[in-house]
Every structure is written in structure tokens, then in C-alpha cells.
Amino acid sequence: MKHHQEARQWPLWASLFVALLLTLTPAPDWYGTLFPEVNLRPVWLLPVSFYWAIALPQRFSVGYAWLFGLLLDVTSGGLLGRHTIGLVLAVWIAQRFYLQFRQFPLGQQAIVVGLLALMQQLSLLWIDGATGVLSQPMHYFTPVITTTLLWPLLFPLLRKLRTSLHVR
């Protein structure tokens, strides 16, 4: 038992809300002119959820992942439940193997995050295909690459947030 500091939780929820906002905020005008017809925006909620699921599995679990997925569904205007399945599955896998994932070097973790992002995008692809709103399949897969590349930057940031603010 080494509770030197009062345990804090708000940075966990704040980081998830920031991830949600980054998903929702419109891309600046120059993005459209620089990368026309390419969707390079990473999926933010999944890697942030993954981090908290392996760092604090007793705090952040599948239930909260489902809630944040639902928030994303409501704010992004899609069918309710569109994002929840992918997020719940990713957090589930993260929690099942969190001890192993913690030991992984950063590159290997990035690959895991990429695979989970791929799984989420595939679930979106299937849901949109089944409900008949599928238009450009490539737009589902490019975010997987950027999300994988994002992890080596995101991980130290979230780690710094957790250790310096004593999030438990």
C-alpha cells in the first residue's frame, strides 16, 4: 500500500473527452486542399481507451468504453451502437491481456493498437454495409495506419499525464 498522494481520476475522463472532441472537431480548410479525398484522421477514442484499460484496468472497463462509444454515436449522428461494439471488444482484449501488453515494447504495442483499430473499422464497415450507407471503403482503412503511427506519440503523453497527476 503506497498511497502517498490522493488518488485522482479526473485526468482519465478529461483525456477521453479530449479524444472525443478531437474526433468531432471539423478538419481545417487546408486539410481538404492538401489531402483531397483521403481520410487520414486517426480514431482517437480507441487508443486512449486502450491506454487506460491496460494502465488502470480496475478503473476503466468495458462499461465506460461502451458509454463513450454511445456518446460518439450520438454526437456524430450515426446509428446508436455503431461505435460501441468495436470499442467494447478492444477494451475487453486490452483488459484480458493487460499484463502482457504492459511488457510490450512501444512498437509492438503500436501494432496491437493498429490491429484493434482495424477491428473497429471492420466492425464499422460491416455495420454500414449491412445498413446500406457504405460509400468509399478506403476511408475506413487509412485511419488504421495513422492510429498505429500515433501510438508512439500518444503513449508517452498519457503516461506523463497519469504519473505526474497521480491518476489511480
Binding site: S61, V62, L79, T84, I85
Partner: peptide, 20 residues
């Protein structure tokens, strides 16, 4: 954990179906 994850996935599928 397993039971919760499966339940939540089922709930999502039901939500999707009803919403669609």
C-alpha cells in the same frame, strides 16, 4: 469481465437493429 463485454456487445447489436 467476459460476461459484461458479451452483454454490452449484444446490447449494441440490439440498439443498432432497433435504431435501423
Amino acid at each position: 469481465l467476459n460476461a459484461r463485454a458479451i452483454l454490452l456487445c449484444l446490447l449494441s447489436v440490439i440498439l443498432l437493429g432497433v435504431d435501423q
